[in-house]
Design a protein around this nucleic acid. Structure first.
Length: 982
RNA sequence: GCCCAGAUGGCGGAAUUGGUAGACGCAGCAGACUCAAAAUCUGCCGUUCGCAAGGAUGUGCAGGUUCGAUUCCUGUUCUGGGCACCA
């Protein structure tokens, strides 16, 4: 009988399914264990071999835990809202709901083939109104709550209103720069709009303004990864920052709790560190500097800080260096800039701001080139009255701190370079610690040139300065967070609608009974007016007439939709009770399943999803809807399976008018040469290699710029490195059909890079073919065998044969091709029991520490050993099948039943390791001379040090190396090694 | 630029706490079985010197600590992930 994997895998998948072998109950005598995979987005490309890596690991662990006697929750579902489906709809006219459904069906088919033990009755879908009803409900919880600064907890906003009505603003005074103090009487006298505007400053889900990537030519907002080098990835159109009304989650209020509670989690230090850095807590001071303007332009009414008492507020972590401040740097979009710029600097400043507007935040931070402009105004040092020039530069971002920094070039790398570049004189406040050629960030030097601080150690000066500033009323201690509030709206169609009605500029929440607010069916996905989303094109949807149902509240529905992470911030709760119509999940269910015990997913979610889920859990906990305040107790980060990407290179010539002449694609060889060329040189080069290139000379001149962009192409339209030009022109709905390709030797050669396997990088490998050819068990074990789960590794199909051979070899321990069944009931020998128990120990240990690759090789060693000694004994083989079940469930199930068992193998008990079978009495010791192994010596394990030394020194090889001398020292580590020092 | 991780044979990787570097698998080479192929089995397989015995060298690079370092420390290079609208 042969190992017919495709037949037996199908058979058992069918039987498991029919008998609901993986159905999980919310009540059980067994201890619970919750294993969760990160929520997949069902992309049109289907599964690639990178996806199942984590799923196989979680499946192995779930099955292992079940064998160990746990009630294991192991669910799966889909993060089904998202940009790609909408983009697909724009390109192909297929409604996202339709394409998403197809994609999910496809995903499911692929997942099923791999033989996972998911309880599919618990499947959830974020785009299902039955699900997003509760996403909207949680949003309303956020909208209707604020972070109480006294209790440090989410609290219904009605409590804040009560506080305002009785004591005025005392509870929140000083928390928001935009909210001035008021009394209870004043509060009551405010108009509804005034009151609501104040409350909006405290709601955990709130509306504000934020900058987006606006592409005028496409009339839409672009995601960051749709913007490359300041132009849109598609078509190469210019992209600018645009200010739009946006929803946010006030995650900054939770910064401290999110930071402190990291201690409670069994996450890797790297992951905790990333979140810690993302939150970016720092302590320092906010300092107000008086500003002296020189001949500034007349101001218009709505410009900020009009009047004589202009002030610049900076945030610094080093107030001790205040005498070393040689210039100020303000973000170019800072509200003060327009008001302080001198007439002489007006043009320079405006030009610089235009330049900065075209730059993404990422580019601004990554830029090595030092740029900036002097505003012509000065800040006054409050201690010595020095006039400090105020500059603007792109490296200071508006959103962080106060959007302005005090620059101390003798103590800070970036400030030092800036000062040198613009010839700003540097004050040395560090004495000998500053040598004039490189800055020194020390806190341990004694201050010089620092007025009343001279001679004080910098570290100690921090307190002195802050005390003095507070005394003078021009500064205060301040804890700052790098983290910003989370943008929570998208100008898109395919997302959860906000249950919010706007009337007279006030946002009113819908009532719970009106949920779910369903997404309307639309014909077109084009953007609405003024950068609004597609929903703004459907007045029959967004116009809400007053009716008793909505409390006679007419108005206009919010036309933004929620972002991808809305649905994925709480999905792990829905699995616990996914059919509940009256609650997001019953308290009984969430209390039983509690935290996710093991969460498996990639590090790419380190600061996005994982932080948002923690926030949502904390808010639901604060409001009494949950009994735990951290969602994921243990986190296992699977490494990426990297793919091999292919690139084409687009040369954009940007005319001075900012029109772009694009659609020229150059082969890799040209690209590597042109990357070092100037614009005209590059153009000349192109004409030289391809005289057919018509455009150019007349349009371009010395003011034109060239920009070279690399663009991912589908690995499937590239053979090796050569692009299939016909397929390329048809690719993406003929998007590149009119492109002009500049070849080398008649071929278009693509660039290569190893990177994350991802649909957007078009470098994916599909698992289906592998499962068909080798079977699910082989595929599962091979994915695990590739390497440590936490490391990223390149995909290579070649080695899969080896794992397949191993399973065939295992099969042959049970069945011979000619003789048929070969297993027997004979008593096992000591050697056989040693192999078995050594394997039990190794598999148990390796599985517990998620070292699945070494577990697979332990199985191989075990089967090799048993085959060598021709062991076909049931007493040995049967327990091995149980060990193997988590890894290769189908073959284990088949052979288990062959042995005559009637129940599913997943309901068996994990074999018990017994140490007595593996004890050794002696050890083949390596004997080193000065750390280099020279010989081996077999000695009893219980031999004493003196006897060992005697045995070692009398050894022939050792004596040869000793050359008659006595050893200086003999190091003996029992059970490990012997080292003779000469 | 900032944050995080990684680097070991031709390739994926192993070495769990500082103790025999290269387990297991792929590829390769040689052989057995076969009319042949597939399948299976046996042996070899870091580099280098040597007929051999044996020696030298070797875990990105440069140092350091140690009887002993892939493992710990300092510096450095390269690669991958993230950087707030991909999910």
């Amino acid at each position: 009988m042969e190992y017919n994997f495709s037949e037996l895998e199908q058979k058992w998948q069918g039987k498991w399914n029919e008998s609901k072998a993986y159905k999980v109950s919310n009540t059980s005598d067994k201890p619970k264990y919750y294993v969760l995979d990160m929520f997949p987005y069902p992309s049109g490309a289907g599964l690639h071999v990178g996806h199942p890596l984590g799923y196989i690991a979680s499946d192995i662990f779930s099955r292992y835990k079940r064998l160990k006697g746990f009630n294991v929750l192991h669910p799966m579902g889909y993060d089904a809202f998202g940009l790609p489906a909408e983009q697909y709809a724009i390109e192909h006219g297929v409604h996202p709901a339709v394409s998403t459904e197809q994609n999910i069906a496809n995903f499911r088919k692929q997942l099923d083939k791999i033989g996972f033990c998911y309880d599919w009755d618990r499947e959830v879908l974020t785009c299902d109104p039955k699900y997003y009803k509760w996403t909207q409900w949680i949003f309303l919880q956020l909208f209707n709550s604020y972070f109480n600064p006294i209790t440090q907890k989410a609290t219904p906003i009605t409590e804040l209103v009560k506080a305002f009505e009785t004591e005025g603003s005392t509870q929140i005074d000083g928390l928001r720069a935009t909210v001035k103090s008021f009394s209870a009487e004043e509060w009551k006298a405010f108009t509804e709009k005034e009151q609501q505007d104040i409350l909006m400053e405290f709601r955990l889900a709130f509306c504000g303004y934020g900058e987006v990537n606006w592409c005028e030519a496409l009339g839409t907002v672009l995601a960051n990864d749709e913007v490359v080098n300041g132009v849109s990835e598609r078509g190469g159109h210019p992209v600018e920052k645009k200010r739009l009304r946006q929803w946010y989650l006030r995650i900054t209020d939770y910064a401290d709790r999110l930071l402190n509670d990291l201690q409670k989690l069994e996450w890797s230090d790297a992951m905790k560190e990333m979140q810690t850095n993302w939150i970016g807590k720092s302590t320092g001071a906010e300092i107000d500097f008086k500003v002296k303007t020189v001949d500034r332009q007349p101001l218009t009414d709505n410009e900020a800080n009009v009047g004589s008492d202009l002030q610049l507020k900076v945030y610094t972590t080093r107030p001790d260096t205040i005498f070393g401040v040689d210039f100020m740097v303000v973000s170019p979009e800072h509200e003060l800039v327009a008001g302080i710029t001198s007439a002489a600097q007006q043009k320079t400043v405006e030009e610089y701001i235009t330049y900065v507007k075209s730059r993404s935040e990422r580019e601004r931070q990554a830029e090595k080139k030092i740029t900036g402009a002097f505003t012509g105004a000065y800040a006054i040092n409050p201690f010595d009255g020095r006039e400090i020039p105020i500059w603007i530069s792109e490296y200071v971002l508006a959103g962080y701190g106060t959007g302005a920094i005090m620059a101390v070039p003798c103590g800070d790398e970036r400030d030092f370079k800036f000062a040198n570049h613009f010839n700003i004189p540097i004050t040395n406040i560090l004495g000998d610690a500053f040598n004039g050629t490189e800055p020194n960030a020390t806190k341990d030097a004694k201050l010089t040139n620092s007025g009343f601080l001279n001679g004080v150690v910098l570290r100690d000066a921090i307190q002195i300065v802050v005390d003095k500033l507070e005394e003078m009323g021009i500064g205060k201690r301040k804890i700052n967070y790098r983290m910003r509030d989370a943008a929570f709206s998208r100008q898109r169609y395919w997302g959860e609608p906000f249950p919010i009605v706007w009337k007279n500029g006030i946002a009113y929440p819908l009532s719970e009974s009106e949920l779910p607010l369903e997404l309307p069916k639309v014909e077109s996905y084009s953007p609405g007016p003024d950068g609004e989303g597609p929903l703004a094109n459907i007045p029959e949807w967004f116009n809400r007439p007053p009716s008793p149902l909505n409390g006679d509240l007419g108005g206009k529905l919010e036309t933004n939709t929620m972002p991808g992470y809305a649905g994925s911030s709480w999905y792990f709760l829905r699995y616990m009770d996914n059919n509940n119509d009256t609650e997001f999940a019953s308290r009984q269910a969430t209390d039983y399943w509690n935290q996710v015990d093991l969460y498996i997913g990639g590090t790419e979610h380190a600061v996005g999803h994982l932080l948002y889920s923690r926030l949502w859990t904390k808010v639901l906990y604060d409001l009494g809807h949950l009994g735990f305040d951290e969602p994921f107790k243990k986190l296992l980060n699977q490494g990426m399976i990297t793919g091999s990407s292919r690139f084409v290179y687009r040369a954009d010539f940007i005319h001075i008018s900012r029109n772009i002449i694009a659609d020229i694609y150059i082969s890799h060889g040209h690209y590597s040469k042109m990357i070092h060329m100037g614009t005209l040189e590059a153009l000349e080069y192109l004409h030289q290699v391809n005289p057919e290139l018509k455009f150019g000379v007349s349009v371009l001149n010395e003011y034109s710029k060239i920009s070279l962009n690399s663009i991912h192409v589908d690995v499937n339209i590239v053979d090796g490195l050569e692009l299939d030009i016909n397929k390329f022109k048809e690719w993406r709905n003929n998007e590149y059909s009119a492109s002009f390709l500049i070849l080398e030797d008649g071929k278009y050669i693509c660039g290569v890079e190893t990177e994350k396997m991802s649909k957007s990088k078009f470098n994916t490998v599909n698992p289906d073919d592998l499962v068909t050819k080798f079977g699910a068990d082989t595929f599962r074990m091979y994915e695990m065998f590739l390497g440590p789960i936490e490391q990223s590794k390149p995909w290579d199909t070649k080695g899969i044969e080896g794992v397949h051979r191993f399973l065939k070899k295992l099969w042959r321990l049970f069945y011979d091709e000619q003789k048929g069944k070969v297993w027997n009931e004979a008593e096992p020998t000591a050697d056989e029991l040693k192999i078995l128990h050594r394997t039990i120990k190794k598999i148990e240990d390796d599985t517990e520490r998620f070292s699945f690759n070494t577990a697979v090789s332990a199985f191989m060693v075990c089967v090799n050993d048993l085959a060598d000694i021709k062991c076909h004994k049931r007493a040995i083989l049967e327990p091995i099948l149980i060990l193997l079940t988590p890894y290769a469930p189908h073959i284990a199930e088949e052979l288990w039943h062959s042995l005559g068992n009637e129940t599913f193998i997943i309901d068996a008990a994990f074999p018990q390791f017994e140490a007595k079978y593996v004890v050794e009495s002696s050890k083949e010791y390596p004997v080193s001379i000065n750390g280099k192994v020279r010989t081996n010596l077999n000695l009893p394990l219980d031999m004493a040090q003196a006897e060992v030394e005697a045995a070692v020194t009398s050894n022939e090889t050792v004596q040869k190396w000793l050359e008659g001398k006595a050893p200086k020292k003999i190091i003996f580590v029992k059970g490990r090694m012997i080292n003779v020092v000469i």
